[in-house]
Amino acid sequence: MSTNESHADTPPSLRERVYAELRDELLGGRIGPTERLTEPRLSKRFGVSRTPVRDALTRLVADGLLAREEWGYSVVVPSPARVRDLHEVRIAVELRGISRSIENPTLRHDAEALGEEVRHWYGLRAAPPGPSPDFVLEDERFHTALLASSGNAELVAVLAGASRWTRSVRMRGFLVPGRVEAAIDEHIEIAELVLGGSLELAHRLLHEHIGASPEIAEPT
């Protein structure tokens, strides 16, 4: 059967579902770095033929999340050097969201959107979740919202890429006791400084906040 025929026989929604679920599990760290992925096992798990599974695996290889092996597919683990490089990108991009307003006072953060984010974090402070790798998604939510409120969508897109490729590494930081609570407090403080116009102090605290990540989630 040709590739075109196999695609024609597989509904796009089915291919997308398999791809999206595997992608989210890989990026969320729910598929471990030592796990072996094979078409027969995944076909059985999803209750589908091998065609949508093969399509999904091929796309995940193109995404850089999987590598093709003789026996199937392995999970790509970012090298420590790449994690450090992406972390530097994250620092530069996030700080730029504040520094552009320092340089040009006419550029103001979206107070309504950022205020809504602060209220969300006060709710988390009232009932903080326990140590969990899943908290990385809440953390990304804050940093994305803070940068988005600065008004530069392209900076947000760059941050999304850096966050996506380092998520599985950063997740480990939120298993450290007290780290979740500390992150909640720091997020609230930084956002309120931005809302209050104390941009230089917010810039410094954000730098310190992001800079703590490699010490907490040191790649091995």
Rank of each mutant, 00 (worst) to 15 (best):
V93C: 04
G97T: 03
V75D: 06
V75E: 06
R68E: 13
R108H: 11
A92I: 00
L66V: 04
E88D: 14
E94A: 15
V77L: 08
G97N: 05
S99E: 14
V53T: 01
A56L: 08
A92E: 09
G64W: 04
I98W: 02
V83K: 04
E88L: 13
A56D: 12
P78W: 06
R54Y: 01
D55Y: 06
V89F: 07
D63E: 10
A67V: 11
V83H: 01
R96A: 13
A56T: 06
P52I: 02
G47K: 00
R68I: 07
R100H: 09
I91V: 14
L86I: 00
K44R: 10
H109C: 09
V77K: 03
K44V: 04
T58D: 15
A111I: 00
D63C: 08
Y73N: 12
A56N: 10
T58C: 08
P80I: 05
W71H: 13
E103F: 04
W71K: 09
W71Y: 06
R54G: 14
T58H: 09
E103C: 08
S79L: 14
L107Y: 04
P52T: 03
E69M: 10
L107I: 11
L60S: 11
F46P: 05
V76I: 13
A81Q: 12
V77P: 02
E103T: 09
S74Y: 04
V61A: 07
L86F: 07
I91S: 03
L95M: 05
V76N: 05
R59E: 13
L57G: 06
I91N: 01
A56R: 01
H87Q: 08
L60T: 04
A62G: 12
L66W: 02
R54C: 10
E70I: 03
R84V: 03
R82S: 13
H87N: 07
V61M: 05
I102Y: 01
P78T: 09
V76F: 08
R54S: 15
T106D: 14
G97R: 01
R59K: 07
R100S: 14
G72A: 08
E94R: 00
A81W: 01
A81D: 14
F46E: 08
L57Q: 04
D63S: 05
R100I: 12
R84T: 11
P78Q: 09
V89C: 13
L57F: 01
A67D: 11
G47A: 11
V61L: 04
L86N: 09
S74F: 02
N104H: 11
R84E: 14
E103A: 15
R50S: 15
E88T: 07
T106L: 12
L107S: 03
W71D: 15
Y73M: 10
L86C: 04
L65S: 10
R100K: 11
